Amino acid sequence: MKNAGRSVENKEEQKALSNIGIGTPATRAPLLKRYSAETISLGKAKSEKGLQVYGLVKDKKIANVQMTAEWEMVLDRIEKGELNANQFINDIQHYTAEITSELLSLSIPQENIPH
């Protein structure tokens, strides 16, 4: 997530991402501290599984950094009273249904599963 906003071309969306700190050392540090012992104990296996998951979802809606920026901009407008929160809630519910369906339809390769 260090470079999460680099692919976002819209300057307003880049600003929204920078304002919430996606991919900054400050947002990564608590996660690293929390999971470092587990990662060390699992070693290479953890990295391989992470790469497999990334390979499965990298082109899916759930991995869309630009959408996060758009949401931040909408939330800012809701806070300012410029937009109705109910529409955003409906949009999030629709998005959640879409990504759930998308993720459930993934074909996950099974490797050396004992029978």
Rank of each mutant, 00 (worst) to 15 (best):
A4N: 00
A4E: 00
G5I: 02
V8S: 01
V8R: 00
V8E: 00
N10A: 08
E13W: 12
E13G: 10
Q14N: 04
Q14F: 01
A16N: 05
A16Q: 07
L17S: 06
I22V: 15
G23T: 02
G23A: 03
G23W: 04
G23Q: 03
A26C: 05
A26M: 09
P30L: 03
P30G: 03
K33D: 06
R34V: 02
R34E: 06
Y35M: 04
S36P: 00
T39W: 11
S41P: 01
S41G: 03
G43D: 07
K44P: 03
A45L: 12
K46R: 14
K49G: 08
K49W: 12
K49H: 12
K49L: 15
G50Q: 05
L51S: 13
G55C: 05
G55L: 05
K58Y: 07
K58C: 09
D59P: 03
K60L: 15
A63C: 09
A63H: 08
V65T: 13
V65M: 10
Q66R: 13
M67T: 15
E70F: 11
E72S: 13
E72R: 12
L75G: 01
L75M: 06
K80M: 00
L83V: 00
N84E: 02
N86D: 07
F88D: 00
F88H: 02
I89S: 01
D91Q: 04
D91G: 00
T96L: 08
T96N: 07
A97W: 06
T100C: 04
E102K: 02
L104V: 09
L106I: 06
S107L: 13
P109N: 07
Q110V: 15
P114G: 11
